[in-house]
Structure formats: structure tokens, C-alpha cells
């Protein structure tokens, strides 16, 4: 399931087989190669980290200093983070964003599992066609559906509520279905056949056999959807624009500098606060992310 991790575990084994004393020259060659590799990686790391360092440094500057060409905060203004809370109702925006992200994620998970199950573990005429249709919707630009959807939500009086961002998630998400299907296909048929012989229904097979085995994939789609909805900007921009109380973090942040006339330091502090949950989740669930991304694809 997890190619990257598996390979990494295998690597040390591979080395232990080739256990033999090395000549000093060979040892030196390897040391140099290792230094070269790490130098390269460290240089690349610096490039990836530098933007974050600048953001953090600026978020700790005084108003005045953030307008100058200085790079390092002097003094450190830890109060900036408190100021962000004073300028905008960050807690409310976080709560709105969390609601959308959590509920949508639940919706996608519960609605996509049965679909993926039917597309992978049940045989029926038209299955292949249905799967291709799911795949085809993956490349559908959201712009093609957005105007009528807007009109539908208007008719339902959903504009100005969080519903347009949550309810559609309960009707399956093509990407998640695709990913789960790919994973379900890797589970040996014998397992479900055994359950079937014991008289289990398809629903029971799915919930008791397949879902427990597919936990990594389910965790991955849950995380992807959480993150997607946490970061989404276009959806909230269109659908909940009328109601300031329902602003998400993306919306609030996009006009933070222009509407609230704030300095760069507070803008950067707010950006950091916005990224923080993502960073925390990433560290808690790095494995799931890596496995999930790997799963997206391509393996076939």
C-alpha cells in the first residue's frame, strides 16, 4: 500500500546483506558523496523554508518596521498575534471554517465509500462505464456548474448560509471515489467471498470487512477533503459572501489588508495563524498524507 515507506524499510536490509569491510578510499568516496548529497538537500531546504522564515520574522515586527527594508524583527512584537484577534473575529471565522471542513469531510467519507465499493467489489453491467463517468467528472471545471448551482442555492434560500458548502459533499466526491476504488481493488477477493459464504450482506461486507482494511485510504481522503475545504476560497467567495458572520478564514484573510487597512506585520501574523492548524495536522498525520498522495496515483 505504501510504496515509499515500504521501500525505506527495505533499504537498510539491503545494506545489511552487502556487509563487508570497506577500503579507506571507498569509505572516503562514500563520505564525500554523502556530504555532497546533504549539501544539495540543505540548499534546497533553505529555499523551501525561506518564505516561512520571512513570514514569521515579519509577523513579529512592529507596524513601522514592517514598512522598512529591515529583515529581522527588533524588538520582537509578540503582541501582534493578540492584535489580529482584536481586529477581526478570528475565533468565529475559525469556527465557521471548522464546521465546513468537518461536516464536508464526514459527508464525503460516508457517501463515497458505498459508491467506491459498488464500483470495485460488486460486478454489474455498466460498472466500467459508471467508473469512466466518475473519472470524467474529475476534469470538469467547476466554472461549468457554478452559475446554475448558484441559482439553485438562491432558490433554496441557502445563499448566506454554510449549506452550499456542506450539503453537496454528501453526494460523493469523484476524486475520493476514485481513490477509494483503487484501494478497494487491492483487497483480495477471498476475504469478501468468505464473508459472503457466511451469509453476510454486501452492506455487512463493506462495513465489517472492507472498511476496516481500508482505513489508511479513508484517512487519506478525509484529510484531503478537510484540507481542501479548510483552504477553499472560491466557494465561500460565491456562496456566503452576503453574511459577514459566516466568513471563512480564507475570505477574511483575503480582504484583511485592504478592508481593515492593516500593516504587513499583522497580515503575516494572521496568515500564520491560518496556516497553523494545517501545520499541526500535517505533523500529526504525515504518514497518512504521504500514503494518500502516493495512492492518488497512477499505479493503476
Amino acid at each position: 500500500m505504501l510504496t515509499a515507506e515500504r521501500q525505506m524499510i527495505r533499504l537498510p536490509d539491503g545494506r545489511s546483506i552487502a556487509h563487508r569491510p570497506l577500503s579507506p578510499a571507498e569509505r572516503r568516496r562514500r563520505l564525500l558523496a554523502s556530504i555532497g548529497t546533504h549539501a544539495m538537500l540543505i540548499a534546497t531546504s533553505v529555499m523551501f523554508l525561506l518564505p516561512m522564515v520571512f513570514v514569521i520574522a515579519t509577523s513579529l515586527m512592529t507596524d513601522h518596521q514592517s514598512l522598512t527594508r529591515e529583515l529581522w524583527p527588533r524588538p520582537f512584537e509578540w503582541g501582534n498575534f493578540a492584535k489580529v484577534f482584536a481586529r477581526i473575529d478570528l475565533l468565529r471565522f475559525t469556527w465557521n471554517t471548522t464546521q465546513i471542513a468537518v461536516l464536508s469531510t464526514v459527508g464525503v467519507v460516508v457517501s463515497s465509500i458505498p459508491v467506491a465499493y459498488a464500483l470495485s467489489r460488486m460486478r454489474w453491467r455498466g460498472r466500467q462505464a459508471a467508473f469512466l463517468l466518475v473519472l470524467a467528472t474529475l476534469m470538469l471545471p467547476f466554472q461549468v456548474t457554478v452559475v446554475p448551482l448558484y441559482v439553485i442555492f438562491v432558490r433554496l434560500h441557502w445563499i448566506g448560509s454554510l449549506k452550499p458548502l456542506i450539503v453537496p459533499s454528501f453526494f460523493g466526491d469523484a476524486f475520493s471515489i476514485f481513490l477509494l476504488r483503487q484501494f478497494f481493488l487491492t483487497i483480495p477477493d477471498e476475504l469478501s467471498d468468505a464473508a459472503r459464504v457466511d451469509g453476510a450482506s454486501e452492506w455487512q461486507i463493506m462495513t465489517r470487512v472492507i472498511v476496516p482494511l481500508a482505513k489508511p485510504a479513508i484517512a487519506a481522503i478525509a484529510l484531503f477533503n478537510f484540507l481542501y475545504n479548510w483552504n477553499d476560497f472560491f466557494g465561500p467567495l460565491l456562496y456566503i459572501g452576503t453574511n459577514k458572520h459566516l466568513y471563512t478564514l480564507s475570505l477574511a484573510l483575503s480582504e484583511f489588508r485592504t478592508v481593515h487597512h492593516v500593516e504587513w506585520n499583522l497580515t503575516m501574523a494572521a496568515s500564520l495563524l491560518f496556516m497553523l492548524p494545517v501545520i499541526v495536522i500535517f505533523f500529526l498525520a504525515q504518514r497518512v498524507f504521504v500514503e494518500g498522495v502516493t495512492l492518488t496515483g497512477v499505479k493503476g
Binding site: F153, V154, H157, W158, I159, G160, G241, T242, K244, V259
Partner: peptide, 18 residues
């Protein structure tokens, strides 16, 4: 009174009957 609301949002609200 509610502030910070631009025309697009007013139009959205007129559309949605809110």
C-alpha cells in the same frame, strides 16, 4: 446597521430573497 457590505453582496441577497 451592518457595514462592510459591497454591491455584489447586495445583489446576491436580492437574488436570494434575503
Amino acid at each position: 446597521s451592518e457595514g462592510g457590505i459591497g454591491d455584489q453582496k447586495i445583489i446576491q441577497a436580492i437574488n436570494s430573497g434575503t
